[in-house]
Design a protein around this nucleic acid. Structure first.
Length: 309
DNA sequence: AATACGTGGCC
DNA sequence: TGGCCAAGTAT
């Protein structure tokens, strides 16, 4: 069918096409000067190192990932090495990084890579996306950082940089919008190598300079072009961004239960787990949830351990 | 679309 | 001191 009326191109996207050309060089130059020397960015990290780092960095600061990453890569230097071990060992090695389902999914991804991809991290975005624990962002990140491909890598840092520099607002929307994806595509350099650099550079800018709080515009390579800054840095208006409650939630109980099981060498009796939380209903619900998620394996006789299978 | 999912550092 | 924040994914 033909579209009788072509939607008007939003003025922002139109302007962005021009603006993009002004942003790329300064941001990439800044990156090449100021990029952190992170282990997963070194040439010897390889696609598996990039992928492991991306799993660990989901919602988790670099400083806490570094030591766990080093131990992980030393122990499981290839996907097949991790696949041979139990998922419980992955959960244990995950330590206190948080969101331990990531460890389970990373193990599952390693198994899938071993079975379906001959042990090599796949190169295609669609193949990456099909792996457990890999969503839109991580698929693009691995394809871009590990294989130098041209993808829109839209994480919280990049979204914030775009929101400020181009859209002129302090914070991006709560959830990623179609408009943001469109803007990211518009801003993505045509050249593959430049696009990959741009992805890493715009993310690093958001992580180091254009931060959520206490942004340091004096160090920003595109401050002169930043719409938000030029507008006087107006405060975020819209609906408040949902905070994450934690104290007293099932998540806290799950955390305590799993902490006990991570430290245990032998199966743990129910009675020991019972001590981590007073309230029995919530305690039972949390444990059931962990079992349902595959993070805990119940054995006969009221014993529990990290999953072996 | 909204919600669940860990943990710890910071101001 | 406690809410905010940190390279999201799955349902």
């Amino acid at each position: 069918m033909t579209a009788p009326t072509k939607p008007t191109i939003p003025a922002q996207a139109d302007a962005a096409e021009t603006v993009g050309d002004d942003l790329h060089a300064p941001v990439i130059d800044w990156f090449e000067e100021h990029a952190r020397d992170l282990p997963w960015r070194r040439p010897d990290a390889g696609p598996w190192g990039v992928m492991v780092s991306e799993f660990m960095l989901q919602q988790t600061p670099v400083s806490r990932v570094l030591p766990v990453y080093e131990q992980w890569m030393a122990r499981w230097p290839r996907p097949a090495d991790l696949a041979e071990d139990t998922p419980g060992e992955a959960v244990r090695a995950w330590g206190r990084l948080g969101y331990p389902r990531r460890a389970l999914r990373l193990h599952g991804a390693a198994v899938a890579i071993t079975e379906r991809h001959d042990g090599d991290v796949p190169t295609e975005h669609a193949q990456l996306l099909a792996l457990p624990g890999i969503g839109e962002y991580t698929a693009a990140a691995v394809a871009s950082f590990a294989y130098g491909q041209r993808h829109t890598v839209l994480d919280t840092n990049v979204r914030r940089v775009f929101a400020r520099a181009v859209t002129g607002v302090q914070y991006p929307p709560n959830a990623t919008t179609a408009a943001e994806r469109k803007l990211a595509r518009t801003l993505l350099p045509d050249d593959e190598r430049t696009a990959a650099l741009w992805a890493a550079a715009s993310m690093e800018l958001g992580a180091l300079v254009c931060t959520a709080k206490n942004e340091t515009c004096v160090r920003c390579p595109i401050a002169a072009l930043c719409t938000w800054r030029l507008a006087g840095k107006p405060a975020h208006d819209g609906p408040p961004r949902r905070g994450q409650t934690y104290a007293g939630t099932d998540r806290q109980v799950r955390g305590r239960l799993l902490a006990v099981l991570r430290e245990a060498v032998t199966p743990v009796p129910q009675s020991v787990l019972d001590r981590v939380w007073e309230e029995p209903v919530q305690r039972a619900r949390a444990l059931d949830g962990l079992v349902a998620d595959g993070l805990v394996e119940p054995l006969v006789g009221g014993l529990y351990r990290l999953p072996h299978g």
